[in-house]
């Protein structure tokens, strides 16, 4: 019952840690705590407990259904005889992992993914932080329309612009260029990254920068050594979010990259079945695990603040 409130306070607390306790955030944490306590003090009758138990039971049921496909990929990866159905392996084996443990199948696609998504994340976050700073710190006419344009372009379905992008890339000879794919992927994530970054930057009070300014620091210096350290947690949420979304993206590299030696894991996984003739489901599962591992690790590393950060930025604030 209190978990949602706790998540909220946890993320706000995390924000505070980075941003140095702005008054508003602190007050919200206290409010949530107080109302939670009030509810506890109110006591819980048998009807209430029954309702709570029903809520738990429903959640377990939903969770079990959501779990089945995830269970399949884990169990099948250790089962060289894996079929389409989820099943406990008769003998656990690392055979599937051994079969795909080579440069061509696994390491090169993953390295390509890392190059593509890492490069694009770097492009996106550099441009986003630089762009968010003036938007957060200065007044100018057209600021609101500009912000609204940024917000609306976050909703632009990238799928719908891929044909003209492909067509343009053919004309300037950027198709099958890793740099071209990095720049496009970077640009396509930019509106959301600017929006997230600006939100986190707004939470950093300006007074501290003003000190830096009076001591003669330029704007880049102030941004780099004052503002960015203070919004560290927000920046890591934005960076990891950007990276995770790019890592899962299939359509962009599918359209823009052609040579087998340049393809990232998203695309080679699609060609996985055709590559080997008959589909080896165990190997497909093992490769899926390798491919998913980075984002799962990042998620575990960032914990709930990542998820709540996304949603807060995407839904509640937006």
């Amino acid at each position: 019952m209190t978990s949602a409130a706790e998540t909220r306070s946890a993320t706000t607390a995390a924000e505070e840690g980075g941003a140095g306790a702005s008054g508003g955030a602190g007050r919200r944490v206290r409010d949530v705590g107080a109302s939670g306590a009030g509810r506890l003090a109110g006591g819980r009758g048998p009807r209430r407990r029954l309702a709570d138990a029903a809520a738990s039971a429903t959640m377990v049921l939903i969770g079990a259904i959501f779990l089945v496909p995830l269970l399949w990929v884990v169990l099948a990866s250790f089962n060289t005889e894996a079929t389409l159905s989820v099943a406990w392996p008769d003998d656990w084996s690392l055979g599937n992992f051994r079969a795909i443990w080579n440069a061509e199948t696994t390491f090169r696609p993953l390295a390509n993914s890392l190059l593509l998504c890492g490069g694009a994340t770097l492009v996106t976050m550099t441009a986003a932080v630089l762009c968010a700073y003036p938007m957060s710190r200065y007044r100018f006419t057209g600021k609101r329309p500009l912000l609204l344009t940024v917000i609306f372009s976050t909703g632009l379905p990238i799928t719908a612009v891929m044909i003209p992008v492909y067509s343009l890339f053919v004309q300037v000879n950027l198709v099958d260029s890793m740099l071209g794919a990095i720049l496009f992927l970077g640009a396509s994530s930019l509106p959301y990254a600017i929006f997230l970054t600006k939100g986190f930057m707004d939470a950093v009070p300006m007074e501290i920068e003003q000190c830096a300014w009076t001591e003669g620091a330029g704007i880049y210096r102030a941004l780099w050594s004052v503002v960015m350290p203070l919004m560290r947690s927000g920046l890591s949420v934005a960076t990891i979010f950007t990276f995770v979304m790019m890592w899962g993206n299939f359509f962009v590299p599918f359209m823009l990259l052609l040579s087998p030696e340049k393809l990232p894991a998203a695309v080679t996984l699609y060609t996985f079945s055709s590559q080997y003739g008959q589909v080896a489901y165990g190997q497909l599962a093992a490769f899926s695990i390798f491919y998913s591992l980075p984002v799962v690790v990042l998620y575990l590393f960032m914990g709930r603040s990542l998820g709540t950060g996304f949603a807060a930025a995407g839904g509640v604030k937006g």
Binding site: F66, V73, V244, L269, S288, V295, V296
Partner: peptide, 16 residues
């Protein structure tokens, strides 16, 4: 579990 389903790459989700 629900969030894991969400962060998995699209192609992996498709196969699963």
């Amino acid at each position: 579990v629900v969030v894991a389903a969400w962060i998995l790459p699209e192609v992996v989700a498709g196969y699963l």
